[in-house]
Design a protein around this nucleic acid. Structure first.
Lengths: 156, 156
DNA sequence: TGGCAAAGATTGAAGTAGTCAAAGATTGGA
DNA sequence: TCCAATCTTTGACTACTTCAATCTTTGCCA
């Protein structure tokens, strides 16, 4: 709305990076509500949804690895996994060589739910589907660059 | 990493919208950790940060309006506002004509903190600053289109 | 004008997430 | 064998979330 107030003509002057970035921020922050709503449809919390999204049915991972993926404390993962396991969506399995480790495997039931969630998540909005091949390539490059920059920051 | 595994040559074939959208999702979900980290630097939780971000120092809003902005329950706002108020960052004020309403005003201390947070939030990553004017315009158009689509969904 | 429904904010209860510190189990190397 | 390191869990505490219930105030209307 601010954008329109400032002059939302169809093809306005190119925004400066100072103007563009707030739009990116607004966009990403607005995704929060969308993701929560989507997960709720599947009776999942946002975090449970993230967790299911991260787990690859074909490749079980350790709890600690999941904690890294979710960028949260290992102790936190215990509770989240508890809930998903009690619903029969995933299960803990002992690791081959190391009995300290619990590997997380997606059950068949979990796999089906995960697939449905994924289908809804990945359905591109019409605005994306309508992009030209060139626009898509550019957007992909930009997003990858920012992602790389961000994760470099995290390492530092 | 999957992207690279699949063939991350510098100027690859344009991604299909089926390929692009997951990247957008990955991007936005990754912002969660970034936002939490940023807010933590200012001793704010993510939600308190959102709240301060939403409040315009020049234009107080009602609690209920804030609840709408944050897409959360009104009862939730009470607690969040309590904490920010106890730190002297915002304050409740009675509305002119309606004594039911509490208007939220940003204090001078809050305004300064908000400004610092905003400066950090809005600092465009190098990847964005480096974009051509044309790329910036395209990206802005895309994001606005998706935002509009999403909010239309919410209304429906 | 007196009464009542609706609106705005708060409270309380219950559940989910998040951190940190400490403990238990297991491993691997000195 | 012993001991430090690793992986997971537990416990205590705070924050966020929703829902139902409450309280005040407002606005309508009979």
């Amino acid at each position: 709305m601010d954008a329109r107030a400032k002059g939302g003509r169809k093809a306005a002057a190119p925004p400066t990076s100072q103007d563009l970035w707030p739009l990116v921020i607004e966009f990403t922050l607005s995704q929060r509500a969308w993701w929560i709503g989507l997960c709720t449809e599947f009776d999942l919390t946002a975090m449970q949804g993230h967790t299911l999204r991260m787990l690859d049915p074909k490749k079980p991972v350790a709890m600690s690895a999941l904690a890294d993926s979710l960028v949260c404390d290992a102790s936190n993962v215990t509770g989240i996994v508890d809930k998903l396991e009690s619903r029969g969506l995933i299960e803990r399995k002992g690791a081959e060589g190391d009995r300290r480790i619990k590997m997380l495997a997606v059950t068949e039931k979990g796999r089906r739910l995960r697939e449905q969630l994924g289908a809804r998540t990945m359905a591109p909005p019409a605005a994306v589907a309508a992009l030209s091949a060139d626009s898509r390539r550019r957007l992909a490059e930009i997003l990858r660059a920012i992602l790389a920059e961000r994760s470099a920051d995290r390492m530092a």
